[in-house]
Structures are given as C-alpha cells and as structure tokens.
Design a protein around this nucleic acid. Structure first.
Lengths: 331, 331
DNA sequence: ATGAAAGCGCTAACAC
DNA sequence: GTGTTAGCGCTTTCAT
C-alpha cells in the first residue's frame, strides 16, 4: 500500500480511502491511485484489514459429514446466501464424530477467522462437547432440538413425518412400518416420534421400529427382513437413501411396489423421481433452511446484537409419486 | 494477550511463546501463563497472527456447484486432508457459472485469507476468466485439461470410459450408445472422446451421441428416445445420475434391463448399488483425487517453492453389477 | 480533499 | 529463560 501511495504521489490514507470506496476523494486523485494500484498489482491484505476492523467477512460452518444429500444442499444454500452478502464460508469438517473430535473442532473454529458460526448439529454427541465460542460470537444451529442455547432453524421434522405416515394410512394400509435413522440423530428421533404419534392418534398399535444409519445398505438389510413378512404393506423410511435400499430388497424378493407394498421416503433427492418406481417422499426445503440460518447470523453480525433465542421450523411438502398406492387386501 | 501477561506477571512475549508451544519457557512459568489464559478466556487472534506470519492456515476452494455427488466427495476429501495438516477450508462457490461470475469469484478469492487455492475446474468457461492469483500463491487444479498453467490432478477419464465401453463390447453388443455430459465440461468431453476412440479401434461406426447435463432428468429424456429404437442394446451414460434416468425410461417402456439392454454409468455413487437393477459403473476415487491435490498444495506452501507443472491421473475401476449382461440376438 | 500519527495483536530478533 | 523493541498493512482519529 505504501508502494502504491508513493507511486501515485499521495499518502497511504488516500489509497485506503480509494480502496474502500470512500467518497471524499477527488475524482482525479482517485483515477491516479486506481491506475497505480493495477499497475503495481496491489491486493488489499485481509489479515491487516481484519486486524483493524475485527471483521473477517467469513462465516464458519461445522458439519459432521458432507456425504449426506441434505448437508450438501444446506451447505450450498449457506454458501450462496453468504456470498450474496460478500461473505465466504470457512469449513471445518469433524472427521470422526467422537466427543473428543467435536470439541477439537469447536475450539479450533472458535479461534478461526470467522464472524459467526453455523452448526449443523446432527448428533446428540454435541451436547457433551465443551463449546465456548468467543464472547459475542453469534451462533446459529441447524437441525437440532429447540432447547439448545442458540437460535435454531430446522426442517419441520414432525410435520413431515406425520404427513408421510398419514398419507399411507389414508391409502387404507392397516399400519405403517418405519425404518428410522440412527439413534444419535435428532432429526431421526423426531421423525420416529412423529410416526409413532400419528399411528397412536389413529388408534393403531405401533409396530417395532427398525433402526438404520441413513445408508442405502442399512435400508436394504432392513428391507430384506420386512419383505419376509407379508403383513407389511406400508413402509415409511426416514430418508430417501434407505427407502431406495428397501425398494431394492422388495424387488429382489419379487414383491411389487406399489402393488404389494407402498413406500415413502424423506428428503426428495434430485434422483428420487427417477428411482424405480419413482419415490413418494417428503420434500425438505434445505435451501430455505440454509438461507434463514445465514440471514439470522448476518443480522446479528451487522447489528452486533445477540440473536434472540428462537426456533424456526421450515415446512415440508409431501410429493406423491409412484411408490405408494391404495391398499389392497392380500389374497 | 497483554491482559494475560499482566495477570501472570510475565511479558507478552512469554505468553506468545507459551501459546505457540515453544520450548524455552520454564515449566512453572508455563503453568502460570496457561492458568491465566484459561482464567481470562484468552483466544489468540488469527488476524494478528496471520498479519505477522503471512500464513492463514486455510486453503481456498473454488467450485461451481456443490450439488454433484462428485464435487461433494472431492470437497470432503479436501477438507479431511487439510484438517489433518491443521488447515481449514475457505469455500467460495460461484453461484452462476458465467464468465463474469467466474472472474468475480477468482478475484474475491485471490484477496481472501488463504495460503493456496484448489480449483475444481468443471467448465470450459474458466479459460476465459481473467484469473491472476497473487504472485507466489500456489494453485492446484482438479478435473481439467492437462495443459492449463497449473498442476492438475484428475480422475483418469479416458481409462474409465474406455473400460466401460470395452466391457459392453466384450459382452457381445454390436455397438454402444453414449449419453454424454454437457459440452462445457472437460470430463464429459474426455469421456465421450474415449468412448468414440474405443469404438473406433474396434472397427465399429460411432453412433450419434446424446448430450445431457448430468441430471437424472436429462438421462430420462434421452432414455425415452433410446428406448424407441430396438437396435439399442448397450448404453454408456457419462454419470450414474443420467444412467438412473435412462433406466427409468426403459422401465416405463417395459424393456428389460439387462435382458434387452445393458447400461453402464460413471461415478459409483453410494446409491448406485441399490438402483434397480444395481448399476454397473466406473468407480471414481474422489477421495484420492482430493487428497493428492491438497498434498501437492501443502508441499508447495510449506517449501514456498512453486509446484512443478504436473498431471496426475487417478485410475478408476469398473464395478460390474446387474445392469449389464451378455448380448442376446433380438428375436 | 488530503496527510500525519497512532495502534489493532501478535511474533522475530535481539538483548540480558 | 525472559524481557524489550520494532513492525507486519491497514484504518481511525484528528489536523490541515
């Protein structure tokens, strides 16, 4: 910067003013400085700027894994919304979700060059992690229990899971079986609870739940079990990948979907409409969740006021495709 | 830091030494400083540290989209490898891949707080972008032509696409049709070229290529066309998502896979083994690609030496599942 | 409209 | 083993 100032014959203050687009610089001087800048290939130094201003124009994201479709969409939405405001994203994936690693990630991120943090809070393990963000650092949590210490944005898991279950019941199925996500996942728990509640309210005894781990393989294994039992005519899987695995199992055994059994997923991946048969599923608005989280965070960063503890639930929509049909009495 | 120094009754230099784990501090002093640190909740300021050292301990990633499975796996591998070395990832997604946006992303990233840049270089548009990283900033490119100005790491597209095509030929199919990725994608182009070359070397006339956009929908639309033509018995799709779309089309029309037509994809998504039928596909080692790119970059950051222009190709493996079978003469 | 001075928090270099 | 000094590149006063 001093070089530019010398080259343009002005003080470094003026260079700073030009660099930041301040108004009180004469047009002629401005041009001269701009010319010197590009001639010398000047780039402002973010570190120095951040040191002065205390702002990094970056928001930190903590995620356990990037390999689920939901996290991916959420991350993309977070990135897009942040970019719109001129912020970049600093990613700190937690390699293995053990309690030790989690607090490691936290602590590293908390001394990271970020102005705020979005936590995609998949696991109960988080509760045990000792996370103390620097005082005044805004935090928003996605996908969690509403009773954490920070504002929460989430998909309305309950509403989505109830809609899925109700859809199958309305099709005349005597009951609905559930292939759930892992025990340490909040969203999995919420979906399972809502499924059981919906069944209970309809006066139906809740069949035993099968617990998977979100993977197609776990869906496949449970599907193989379910396919043995000819009383099973309706299945709600806690995500599309497990639903896909379940469908594979039924195909292999030769039971027709949706003729013999109806299947509903959760997520609405881009691929789900091309599964065979095209999957009826609960559409999650990941983009909206990510967007809201960032907006909340940026508002707090801008105003320097803490975010009010709040819980925002983004509704889902049931997308009915070809994997569900009216129940027909088994012969 | 001054506070900590005062509180512990030492100079701020000693605090710095403790904070950075230097050895020349007496154990007793160290303990005292550590105690003061945690009592006062001291966090080192990254900006100041970066300003001094010129290092940010973060690497920048430019990607066009996070919504393809391949990019996501690559990003995860980059993040993991970087985390192992104590680096974080700064993400700057380019919202819409127009030439203007690209250079915007570049320029913003180039003044970002990063020590090096990985570009996941999907599109020909990049060639026109005026990207001048700061002098001395290491850059590695993933997924591109080998003749760019930077070292390149990529999946061996040619080898993979040839293996897919050869597999279908060896099954006795008279020819292989290709559903390609978009024209502006390097990897799509390479796969299509390899497919045509393999056919040519077998003395087979190359059938017209169908161009999709990686989406299941585009695969479905082309699949509907292909399914009309009963001479079509073997299809190589440039990714698994399009292969899924093609399969859906054949299911709808009632042509059996693999009885009537064999289909091969490219990527080997986690879901592909549960498609119906389980998809024969080319497995890409995304993790390895990401890992190598980061290793190259970190080596250059550590040594402060420019990376030698190089081209590293990570081999693929053909995974044969149930979507391909021996050709049988059409009745 | 422009410049001079001070200092953000940290660490490398050199005392002692 | 510890303290002192200086300065990284920038911006925020306060003068002019």
């Amino acid at each position: 910067m001093a070089d530019v100032a010398r080259h343009a014959g002005v003080s470094s203050q003026t260079v700073s003013r030009v660099s930041n687009g301040h108004s009180n610089v004469e047009e002629l001087t401005r041009q001269r400085v701009l010319a010197s800048m590009s001639e010398l290939g000047y780039r402002p130094n973010r570190a120095a700027r951040a040191l002065r201003s205390g702002k990094f124009r970056s928001i930190g994201v903590i995620m356990f894994t990037l390999s689920t479709a939901g996290n991916m969409s959420t991350l993309e939405a977070i990135g897009r919304e942040a970019a719109l405001a001129g912020y970049s994203i600093t990613l700190l994936p937690v390699v293995a979700p053990t309690a030790g690693d989690v607090s490691g990630a936290y602590n590293r991120l908390s001394e990271q060059a970020v102005d705020g943090i979005v936590i995609v809070y998949e696991s109960h393990l988080m509760e045990h992690a000792a996370f103390t963000p620097p005082t005044g650092m805004p935090v928003v949590v996605i996908d969690s229990n509403p009773d954490v210490a920070y504002p929460v944005v989430d998909t309305d898991q309950q509403q989505g899971a109830r809609a899925a279950t109700r859809h199958l019941l309305e099709l005349g199925h005597p009951t609905v079986h559930h292939v759930a996500g892992p025990a340490n996942s909040f969203s999995a728990t919420h979906r399972a609870e809502a499924w059981a509640a919906e069944l209970g309210e309809a006066g139906i005894r809740v069949p035993p739940m099968l617990m998977g781990d979100w993977s197609t393989d776990s869906g496949y294994r449970h599907g193989l079990d379910l396919a043995q039992n000819h009383d099973v005519t309706a299945i709600f899987a806690a995500n599309d990948q497990m639903a896909l695995g379940v469908m594979r199992a039924f195909h292999e055994v030769g039971r027709d979907i949706p003729g013999d059994v109806s299947i509903v997923g959760f997520d609405d991946l881009e691929e789900s409409s091309s599964f065979w048969p095209p999957l009826t599923t609960v559409h999650q608005n990941f983009a909206q969740v990510g967007r809201l989280a960032v907006q909340l965070l940026l508002a707090s960063i801008d105003t320097a006021e803490p975010i009010a503890r709040s819980s925002t639930l983004v509704p889902t929509t049931l997308v009915v495709r070809a994997s569900t049909a009216l129940h027909r009495a088994t012969p």
